[in-house]
Design a protein around this nucleic acid. Sequence first.
DNA 1: GTTGAAATACAGACGCG
DNA 2: CGCGTCTGTATTTCAAC
Lengths: 153, 153
Amino acid sequence: MLDKYERLILKVLQKDGRASTQELSDAVDLSPSPVWRRVKRLEDDGYIQRYAAIVDSKKLGLGAFGYVQVSLVDHSENSITIFKHFVHKSEQVLECASITGDFDFLLKIVATDPEALEEFIMKHMLRLGVVRNTTTTFVLRRIKSSGALPVDM
Amino acid sequence: MLDKYERLILKVLQKDGRASTQELSDAVDLSPSPVWRRVKRLEDDGYIQRYAAIVDSKKLGLGAFGYVQVSLVDHSENSITIFKHFVHKSEQVLECASITGDFDFLLKIVATDPEALEEFIMKHMLRLGVVRNTTTTFVLRRIKSSGALPVDM
DNA sequence: GTTGAAATACAGACGCG
DNA sequence: CGCGTCTGTATTTCAAC
């Protein structure tokens, strides 16, 4: 289990992934060496999977987000493999999960604008031949995005 | 606009937010100085919003994800403010967006297990008094998560 | 958990193409 | 004007205690 220092370190690193050992040291009130060892352990044990730069989508001209629910024509090994391969190779697909309910998958998709988003679904996803139908929900406004995971539960 | 170096830098930093100037230098085939200047510019101009550590949810005992569609009792300033405040203060709410369709908001929620997730909705969200109804979709399996934004569009 | 020392990376100055 | 070489300084990394 994680002690209170490790929890605090995770909390800080989720907000600032480039916090130096020195900064963490100040934040958790522990000298740099033990902090460094803990960070190393958190990385080695897989608590910290990786670090990432969070990029502004609007700055890149990506102004449309949508959630697309997808159901496949069948649930054969083959259909699922084709669909998953499509999901992984498509950079526009930011997230994908299999879900409960009437649909098989929920995808979060990004595009330059709503038309481009619809085009992605029509021209790329539906042409796979394994998608039975889809329901698209457009994002009007992002209220909160990729909040940090709670570490104290 | 971004040149090919900056695009490559963004691509790499989204995958490895702690890539050193030297590593970036090797990756984009440019000496460290101009790379460092570009990174600084990308940060200062807001292309890179921040850096974050990506934490393993399972390791933290967070085994349940769900998407919850929410509609409010009314769309008064007050109701919306109360709901947004709840969203921002709740660490279990990872994402929130206002959406098209029959519902007002789509939330991505995390919890230790499905029961805890349902409890969060019942005991915390519904007790706000501003939520008319909700539909919860449970995540069975995460296929792809927080993929990097495409930089070449 | 603390100290300290070697290795590395950063952040900028300066001159070159 | 921006690239690349160079350099003092800060930070990281990992001993030994």
